[in-house]
Design a protein around this nucleic acid. Structure first.
Length: 478
RNA sequence: GGCGGUAUCGUCUAGGGGACUAGGACGGAGCCCUCUCAAGGCUCAAACACGGGUUCGAAUCCCGUUACCGCUACCA
């Protein structure tokens, strides 16, 4: 038997990290155990669902590479089937019509709450004689369809929690069809999951209490039950459910922060799952290979952006600069540091730049920030850098000039030759290498921190390096 | 309130009755490396929620308590 799983977001916002994680686990399960990963857009809440949001969810999923195996199912398109299934419930006697108005129910609920009782619909409409029901229906009285919860208990063997049991007396006769004949969530979900032949429903554990209702629906409809797996929630740093208050919660936010999709996936995978053996950094194929339901955890996890960044840094180092190049170019262009044409003609150079910067970056944005001195025509000198490394202007000018001479006389512009020349000059002057490299670093980059000084010189090229030294000298003399 | 779920360092987690002096990772502190910054290496601080059982033996099994989370709609 091949597994069929689905991710079923409602298009009422962006793709949330929690949703992405649910989608990921569904996808990983399908890839590891063999099966189809399907996507269903639950757009039955017409008031809140938007097309922009649907688009955003697709974008997020595509960015992550969580592609679905069959055409997207829009729940709203299946309205007729949902209705038909609800009516079938009526036909087989598993449901009944309820004429109580929302106001009446509300009043009774409030009353019960005042008494401190748990409110549960009292089934009064189920006691209506058949002819009375017929009369009211004929008279066009508005009514909902309620599922008649049977006696006994409902339980299932959850893939992550083990057996979960609910006494049926604790679940009320829930509405399956509204008075406007539209289906309620649980009805639509079950009808669609049956139609899509879903074999494993994997979703957030906030759905645990929906599960007994859904199981009853399957049973009443005579459908075979899928398995269920309820994943733990993802919380913010304060332990509360993740929300806008916690900053970036949409996967798109992280994309724009320069996070790699594979790092996002890797990080998310570790929230609620562990491959064991102290393994943490994984490529996507490795995650598929190692995924197993045994490693799923029951405990809600807190989303820690710090670890995400670290994870991204790991993936940045892992990836060859060639594959990072398109991403970095886009970001560079977007930041206005270069034009598309400029970067295209310096492909090879760009790759060596990335080689240098990715090691000290955690995000693509970090790379872009650090790239500025290498791309700009001229550098601007950081005030602190001047204060610290160019304290004595005259001496600095003299030093830079001697460095300039050394660099001019280096035979071939190659790291070892440059290093030998510079170190020899430092020794001749009786100063430590750092005393020479730091002021030079400021001249070349405007900053006190950068990649290794020889790498910087190589990357800049001899001509550019000499120009920058000249610029610095002019600046210092001014 | 009722029902359900969960409980190991601040955080993500390993752990499936003796291998636990509880392991790894992020973050923190420090050291090494070193031209700066990173990266890397090493070291340190840091946890089994509490109480009862079961057992020769419990982080691991059972029961309570507590805390947290979720659901409790003609929302999804």
């Amino acid at each position: 038997m091949t597994h069929r799983l689905r991710f079923a977001p409602s298009p009422t916002g962006y793709l949330h990290v929690g949703g992405a994680r649910t989608a990921l686990f569904n996808w990983l399960f399908a890839k590891h155990y063999g099966g189809q990963f399907l996507l269903r857009v639950e757009d039955t809440d017409r008031a809140r669902s938007t097309e922009a949001s649907t688009r955003a969810i697709f974008d997020g999923l595509e960015w992550l590479g969580l592609l679905w195996d069959e055409e997207v199912v829009y729940q709203g398109a299946n309205l007729e089937r949902h209705r038909a299934d609800a009516r079938r419930l009526l036909e087989v006697g598993a449901a009944y019509r309820c004429f109580c108005t929302p106001d009446e129910i509300d009043a009774r609920r409030r009353e019960a709450e005042q008494r401190g009782d748990a409110f549960k619909y009292d089934r009064r409409c189920d006691r209506l004689p058949a002819d009375e029901v017929a009369r009211r229906v004929a008279a066009g009285m508005p009514h909902v369809v309620r599922f008649r919860v049977p006696d006994g208990e409902t339980s299932w063997d959850d893939l992550v929690h083990g057996v979960i049991t609910f006494p049926n007396k604790d679940v009320e006769d829930f509405v399956v069809l509204r008075s406007d004949a539209t289906p309620i969530y649980n009805m639509a979900v079950v009808s669609d999951d049956i139609a899509m032949r879903i074999t494993l429903v994997m979703r957030g554990d906030d759905h645990i209490s929906n599960t007994p209702k859904q199981i009853m629906l399957y049973n009443a409809l005579g459908a075979t039950l899928p398995r269920f797996a309820h994943l733990p929630m993802i919380h913010g740093l304060d332990g509360k459910k993740l929300s806008k208050r916690h900053g970036a919660t949409a996967v798109g936010d992280y994309r724009h922060l320069g996070i790699l999709p594979q790092a996002m996936l890797n990080f998310l995978a570790l929230l609620g799952w562990s491959p064991g053996n102290d393994i943490e950094v994984m490529t996507v194929p490795q995650m598929i290979e190692l995924f197993s339901v045994e490693g799923l955890s029951k405990k809600a996890a807190i989303f820690d952006p710090k670890k995400l960044e670290w994870m991204n840094g790991q993936h940045l180092s892992l990836l060859p600069s060639e594959s990072l190049a398109p991403l970095v170019s886009d970001a560079l262009v977007e930041a206005g540091l270069v034009t598309r044409d400029e970067i295209n003609v310096r492909r090879v150079w760009l790759i060596s730049l990335i080689d240098l910067l990715k090691l000290r970056s955690r995000t693509i944005d970090d790379i872009v920030r650090q790239a500025a001195p290498y791309l700009a025509e001229h550098v601007s000198y950081d005030a602190d850098a001047i204060a610290k490394q160019w304290k004595d202007r005259a001496a600095t000018v003299e030093l830079l000039l001697s460095v300039r001479d050394t660099l001019t006389s280096v035979n071939t512009w190659e790291p070892h030759q440059i290093e030998d020349g510079l170190r020899a000059e430092a020794e001749r002057r009786g100063i430590g290498a750092g005393k020479m490299f730091q002021p030079l670093r400021v001249a070349l980059t405007g900053l006190t921190v950068s990649a290794g000084i020889f790498d910087v010189l190589i990357l800049l090229g001899r001509q550019r390096s000499l120009e920058r030294i000249d610029d610095a000298v002019n600046f210092l003399r001014a």
